[in-house]
């Protein structure tokens, strides 16, 4: 175990809207060590992406505001840094790749130019050198004929290649931490397999820590060492991947695993969905946010929201069943 590269403590990001305060992220704790992979899973609206944006301080403000907690990266609290210094960290020490590479690449600039821009800005390289490095990065992520390809525009790339270009850009300054927000959701399974393979290689070769946000539990099982399960802005379970999949504790995690169709299942069986739908963040129920859908609910679940505790040294659960 190395020292923690990133430590997030009690992070709270709320949105102040006309309809009231929306607690998108409400008390999230986790840490990532060097070269580690953390998966964050949850349904849409559970606060996974806002957690990522908060780390980079990219939450649109107003209406969003980080109202509490600490984000300690390499021993320094990012929340106390002036904007000037944050700019030096983004894309340099912490970089991010997004779900849809078409909307995050600029359509009117050549792909090489967009990668070179990052290199020129953070590493103070000349244009020529930066372009050379850009095509080298494209080569590293498996794009054939990188020198020619660097001169092309995003629309000339296929979906998988665009995502590769995004990864090349994100890794061009050898960041310590890569935040990947649903990096393979828009891709076909065969292309997804290529991208996942690539991320594993990069992690092994450069020791980059990866924070992977996804709703696909299969991807998590293959790639991550630890998993954080979020529900309605709160962490509900946090443990090693192995414990989450083999000894899940929280009813939500149990429900998620039961609702997946299994590929190796013999014969036909019925899926066991989680009934109901995620709560409206604007109008959260009193007590536990999951209570309306939970099959193990007890009277106290309606009254108090559960405190999180560690059942095993590395297994955090927030549920009344275990109190």
């Amino acid at each position: 175990m190395g020292e923690a590269l990133l430590q997030v403590r009690e992070l709270k990001t709320h949105f102040f809207t006309d309809l009231g305060v929306i607690k998108a992220v409400d008390g999230v704790d986790f840490s990532i060590e060097r070269g580690d992979t953390l998966g964050i899973v949850g349904e849409s609206g559970s606060g996974k992406s806002i957690t990522a944006l908060s780390i980079l301080r990219l939450v649109p403000s107003p209406p969003g505001k980080i109202i509490g907690g600490e984000i300690v990266f390499k021993g320094e609290n990012l929340l106390h840094k002036p904007e000037e210094e944050m700019r030096k960290i983004r894309g340099n020490e912490i970089s991010m790749i997004f779900q849809d590479p078409m909307t995050s690449l600029n359509p009117v600039f050549q792909v090489g130019a967009q990668i070179a821009e990052v290199i020129m800005l953070h590493q103070k390289k000349r244009k020529r050198e930066a372009w050379d490095l850009a095509s080298e990065m494209l080569h590293k992520v498996g794009i054939a004929d990188p020198v020619q390809r660097a001169k092309e525009y995003p629309h000339q790339f296929s979906g998988g290649m665009r995502q590769r270009a995004m990864i090349a850009m994100a890794l061009s300054c050898s960041p310590k931490l890569l935040i990947a927000d649903e990096p393979t959701t828009a891709l076909d399974v065969t292309i997804q397999a290529q991208i996942l393979e690539l991320m594993v290689q990069l992690k092994e070769n450069y020791g980059t820590a990866i924070m992977l946000i996804t709703h696909d539990l299969g991807v998590v099982a293959e790639l991550c060492k630890k998993v954080l399960v979020m529900y309605a802005g709160k962490p509900v379970e946090y443990a090693e991947t192995d414990s989450i999949f083999n000894r899940p504790k929280h009813p939500y995690t149990l429900g998620l695993l039961a609702s997946l169709p299994k590929l190796d299942q013999v014969g036909k069986h019925r899926l066991e969905p989680i009934e109901g739908s995620p709560p409206d963040l604007n109008n959260l129920p009193k007590g536990c946010s999951f209570v309306s859908r939970c099959s193990h609910k007890k009277p106290e679940c309606f009254k108090f929201s559960p405190f999180g505790r560690y059942l095993e040294p590395e297994h955090y659960v927030a549920c009344h069943l275990y109190n």
């Binding site: 296929s158 998988g160 290649m161 399974v189 065969t190 292309i191 997804q192 397999a193 290529q194 996942l196 393979e197 696909d216 539990l217 299969g218 991807v219 998590v220 099982a221 293959e222 991947t241 192995d242 999949f245 083999n246 695993l257 997946l260 590929l263 190796d264």
Partner: peptide, 21 residues
């Protein structure tokens, strides 16, 4: 079939990664 990520940490399978698009 081999490209599908399986939500099971104990099932490690040989993956055939198709090259190209």
């Amino acid at each position: 079939l081999s490209a599908i990520p399986v939500p099971d940490t104990r099932a490690r399978r040989e993956r055939i990664v198709l090259a190209g698009d």
